[in-house]
Design a protein around this nucleic acid. Structure first.
Lengths: 129, 129
DNA sequence: CTAAGACCTGGAGTGGACTCCAACGCAAAC
DNA sequence: GTTTGCGTTGGAGTCCACTCCAGGTCTTAG
């Protein structure tokens, strides 16, 4: 029963999928499009994700789940890869995204009120029967 | 200069698009899949949307923009078409959706906090340089 | 008379983000 | 020594919700 951990802090793609919530296919896809890099390989060519990768995947998940398109995530990944001199650019990118998320939340809130209004209307009709 | 309004409260597809924010193509598509019905036609076969349609489209927009899939909107449309005895079912459907929206908002809020944490981290790094 | 503008139809095409597949490579288990 | 499990690849396929297109019809303007 081989442990999923091959070396300290290095995870197989299956274990990484399990830990991050991405599928193995998605992890491979992300690597292909350049969202993940520096993935080492074991002696038989199998991917070994590091602890850092898990952290990075966590950020990607957050960005993806808040609606950032892959292309923009790629731009962010590129900045991270380039070095510390891109930190202001990263702040700009993330801030813009955060604003977009804030707007999305506000929109959802007003739409939610709209839906609740509709529910209340139906309830009043149902009660009036 | 023909007014866009052909008869009291009846709108051409172009005017309906302008008023609802859907494209003409989307309106035709929604009619095809059964999300809109009872659209009358003028003498030359052109669609005439009523005031009621505008109201309905407003609800559809709200549901769509909060992430309800077309299929579920169709189920809702079906209920509305069927009659008042489906009001409890409509309440159930909308309530479930409202819950989903509430969850989405909560998720976005925590993800937003995560993003802000990252921004703050970058700011501290930038300040420390 | 012609051209523009709004609309019609059926059906094909698009974009984004995966998701699946066939055929293969290893390694451990029985 | 073959089956099981986990992984590999390149490329094709899927899903959703539109979106676009060709070719046609009317009406109105110049």
């Amino acid at each position: 029963m081989a442990t999923e951990l091959t070396a300290a802090g290095r995870y197989s793609i299956g274990e990484t999928a399990r830990r991050t919530g991405f599928t193995m296919d998605t992890l491979r896809y992300y690597e292909r499009v350049g969202l993940i890099d520096g993935v080492e390989r074991g002696p038989t060519g199998q991917r070994r994700f590091s602890e850092d990768h898990l952290g990075w995947l966590d950020i990607l998940k957050c960005l993806r789940d808040t609606g950032m398109p892959i292309e923009q995530m790629c731009r962010f990944a590129e900045l991270v890869r380039t070095g510390d001199e891109t930190i202001p650019a990263r702040i700009t990118l993330l801030t813009a995204h955060e604003q977009a998320v804030a707007k999305r939340i506000a929109d959802l809130e007003s739409q939610r009120a709209h839906i609740n209004g509709k529910i209340d209307y139906y309830k009043s009709v149902a009660a009036g029967e």
